[in-house]
Amino acid sequence: MGAATRDAFGEAIARVGEDPRVIVLTGDLRDSTRTEAFAERYPDRFLECGIAESNMIGIASGLALEGKVPWACSFSCFVTGRFETVRLSVAYQEANVRIVGTHSGVGVGEDGYSQMSLEDIAMIRALPNVSVINPADAVETERAVEYLLDHRGPAFLRLTRQGVEDVNDDGYRFEFGKAVTLLEGSDVALVATGAPVGEAVKAAEALEDDGVSTTVLNVHTITPIDEPAVRMAAARHRAVITIEDHSVHGGLGGAVAEVLAAGNGSAAPLHRIGMRSFGESGSPAELYAKFGLDAVGIARTAREVLKARS
């Protein structure tokens, strides 16, 4: 198991923090959001906002309007949960704010549903001009942070509490809005985002052993979605399966469904793996197994979908 993407974020933000435009804000979560190194290195540009996330997001907006590059960091459910402030003070104003949500998905584990964000992608994706990046592993997170330093416009960076499988090599280059083909096959396309990408890769290996030729597409940028890559996946496979540690409504599955429903000339069916209920306490591994997000669950679903298709 590789590092948690929040750990990679913490290292990267301390590094890019050298840029004097960078301001980091947290709501009493400098430890959990891994922003302590930045806070120690640049205390003047670290703003402790207390447990008051609406105000934190508004302050970030004001900073952005003055040319700073603020990163408002908290558990994803607490920052995106202040949706109305994100909507008006960030998105509508085109404020150059980075909303950083750690502890996304059921991967949070034992703390249970109240700390898990299963709706954050859907909410933010409804805003016209906010980019959504949900990295699959540590190196992708570091490259995404470096990219976001000079990105123009509001962005939401969605991170994990738990360790995730490394799926990219060290020389990985991040291309905003461009999905990454990790494995190329012809029977089924596993279109995944965030922590489950590593599970999808393992599932693909198991499926290959069964003679199922499998593609794994890592969609790290959900807004804007890589439409050509999604259409290609549907055109070249017998089935498309989306996988996300998030509600099946409005997240990656929703985005892919929208692209495919708009017409791609392909009859490949779409199946969405993700959350259809609230989360609960348990270890991340147990929860991924329970909700079919682990390699075993993904492979099982893929076999069922292909069987129904044949």
């Binding site: 301001i23 003047d44 540009r45 703003l47 609406s54 105000n55 997001i57 508004g58 302050i59 970030a60 907006s61 004001g62 900073l63 952005a64 309007l65 003055e66 040319g67 700073k68 603020p70 109305e84 402030t85 008006l88 003070s89 509508y92 104003q93």
Partner: peptide
């Protein structure tokens, strides 16, 4: 126009952010 507002309660936070930026600079 310095800030887009209309949802009551939000403007002061934006103003505070501007004031922090001004103070930092």
């Amino acid at each position: 126009i310095e800030a887009s507002t209309g949802s009551l309660g939000q403007g002061l936070s934006v103003a505070v952010g501007m004031a922090v930026a001004g103070a930092l600079d």
